[in-house]
């Protein structure tokens, strides 16, 4: 399996705050990799650095063997990397369908209708609500919209930042079901979660992040069985 994403000793700062310290990890084609860690560990900072919204002071981010450390965020999307950001960040004043169209911004306009049909097939709820203003959707529907919107760009790698955040347990199950499904259809996934249990259950491999550094890594099953992970993240 080839490495689709390779992050090599990145260091990210917010002013004087050293938020990410020498972090390295990789994602192979076809995998689900998860990055778990407590609130404030630096998970979102890492994803934003990969997608180009933040910059690393040192180190390299490589996507499909290409250095994207200095590539503009909007150009990284064109290369096939999509991010579902923390808190969804859908366009609340635009309609559901317009949000999906924005997701297809990098695609040829001629293919957009087929892609809409594909997303609506996966998320029938969005089809029912296609003309509705996105701000009026429920939390779970907004998360589905955010995921559908990212799929519109046909990503080779999809990064999800806490997709389960703020959702009722039944919806969390549903979101993870969708993640498995997207993976089965061939999308490589980098998943960031505070919900370590769910994340480890779907992941091929996992990294544990603590105050900006990776302290552990292994297969999902290994980490789920590890004592320190159980104590710190799985409630004993």
């Amino acid at each position: 399996m080839s490495e689709i994403l390779k992050v090599d000793s990145i260091n990210v700062y917010y002013g004087a705050i050293h938020a990410i310290k020498d972090v390295s990890f990789s994602v192979h084609e076809g995998e689900i990799v998860t990055l778990i860690g407590a609130n404030g560990a630096g998970k979102s900072t890492i994803l934003q650095t990969v997608s180009g919204l933040l910059r690393s002071k040192t180190g390299v981010v490589r996507f499909c063997d290409e250095d994207i450390s200095h590539t503009a965020a909007y150009k990284i999307v064109e290369k096939g990397l999509a991010q579902v950001p923390e808190g969804r960040r859908i366009f609340l004043q635009m309609t559901v369908e317009e949000n999906l169209e924005m997701g297809a911004y990098t695609q040829a306009p001629s293919g957009v209708d087929a892609d809409l049909a594909m997303v609506y097939e996966q998320f029938p709820r969005l089809k029912e609500r296609r003309r509705q203003i996105a701000g009026t959707l429920s939390g779970g529907e907004q998360q589905m919209l955010a995921m559908g919107r990212a799929l519109m760009s046909h990503p080779r790698l999809l990064m999800l930042d806490e997709p389960s955040m703020g959702l009722a347990p039944i919806l969390v199950e549903q979101i993870f079901e969708i993640i498995r499904d997207m993976h089965k259809k061939g999308t490589t996934i980098l998943l960031v979660e505070q919900n370590a249990q769910m994340a480890l259950s779907v992941a091929d491999r996992a990294y544990v992040l603590e105050t900006g550094s990776i302290i552990l890594s292994g297969t999902g099953a290994e980490l789920a069985a590890s004592d320190s992970v159980r104590k710190a993240y799985l409630g004993g």
């Binding site: 919204l53 999307v77 960040r89 366009f91 635009m94 924005m102 911004y105």
Partner: peptide, 17 residues
Amino acid sequence: KAMRACSEDKGAAQLMG
């Protein structure tokens, strides 16, 4: 539409390409 997206959230707009 891109203008409306930028007016709401520039970061998210960039993530759309």
